[in-house]
Design a protein around this nucleic acid. Structure first.
Lengths: 189, 189
DNA sequence: CCCATATTGTAGCATGCACTCAAGATCTGT
DNA sequence: ACAGATCTTGAGTGCATGCTACAATATGGG
């Protein structure tokens, strides 16, 4: 739709505003008014560049899903520390808005099967990456054990991220650093 | 407001319906219509027993916060296994609706400081209980270390609970059982 | 038997939302 | 500089939905 330079710039400005609003106010309050006011554009301008509000929102949600699992080129090479560090950077870095959006999606999915399925795929993929790194670093660990540990690590990272969002003073990087890098002793049967 | 037996019963029925609707449809879709239909009650009847919709909803949210941290009498006595088991029971047992509601609140809180503060208090209290149990069972662990480990355990439990909600086939109890009961080796500095 | 309470469901009111449109401003290639 | 395409505006439309009140009827209980 956008052909002129100004149009493309406005489009970006609207997407930025959408991302900020989603991160700060949540999906529910991400109304057209909130987005257009933040972007400093008229409603008509929005609809010149997007077919619907949904279109802009979905674009940002896609960004969030991608951002949580960055650098796909590194698959098969990166260390567990790298992966954890990347997650910490995702949550505490400049993309924190996307992280908040991702967490919101996680709960939004409670009552939205389509979102849940999408997140699940993304989640399983990340579990695979973590598990592969674990196996690479801790030999003698079989795939099942590595996957289980990966699941624990990711669950803990997500849980810690929630605490951080509720309490901005929470030392997220410190706790993430304490996470056990290799599977612990087997659980009692 | 309710004086007669039938009134009190209807009140309970409405609260049950509110809990179910909140768990299944989420806070957003917990409309008066949804609640009264589920409870098989007219709208007027609802307002004879509650002053507002908010009143019923808040009552259920309170239930969820209490349910996540049960048996306050046991404080100072229970084992870490007990605490973890209680959380597993909370998430997988008959109160699963309350668990889902609790998880929803966790994200609702992203854009609601009042809710966030309330959850934070509840969370810190549970961290304290977990940390105390850890110290009781693993001697030689100082309070700081125990608290940090408690934070990790609770974060992991929350994270695993989210996975379970997204994927009903997820083996939540199995993964919870794998959680390390004592702090691991100190993190690298 | 009588009054207090409970129940119904429709109607009212307000709100807020996504989206449209006609008119004028701005761009950009030529 | 021109002309047509693109961009922008912002009040306005229509719709959906929500919460709540009310007057009439039914039920409970002492």
């Amino acid at each position: 739709m956008a052909r002129y330079r100004v149009g493309l710039e406005t489009r970006e400005r609207i997407l930025d505003a959408t991302r900020e609003v989603l991160g700060e106010l949540g999906l529910e309050n991400a109304t057209l008014k909130a987005i257009t006011e933040r972007a400093e554009v008229g409603a008509g301008s929005f609809y010149n560049l997007f077919d619907s509000k949904e279109e802009a929102v979905l674009e940002v949600l896609r960004q969030a899903i991608v951002a949580v699992d960055p650098d796909p080129a590194g698959v098969g090479r990166e260390s567990l520390d790298d992966l954890i560090e990347a997650f910490v950077a995702f949550v505490t870095g400049p993309d924190a808005a996307l992280a908040r959006i991702y967490l919101q999606m996680a709960s939004q999915a409670l009552s939205n099967p389509a979102v849940a399925a999408r997140l699940n795929r993304s989640h399983r993929h990340r579990v695979g990456r973590f598990a592969a790194a674990i196996q690479r670093e801790s030999m003698g660990v079989d795939a099942v054990e590595a996957t289980a540990h990966a699941e624990l690590l990711l669950a803990a990272l997500m849980g810690l991220a929630f605490v951080l969002v509720h309490d901005p003073l929470f030392d997220f990087p410190g706790h993430a650093a304490r996470l056990p890098r290799r599977p612990g002793v087997a659980a009692q049967t």
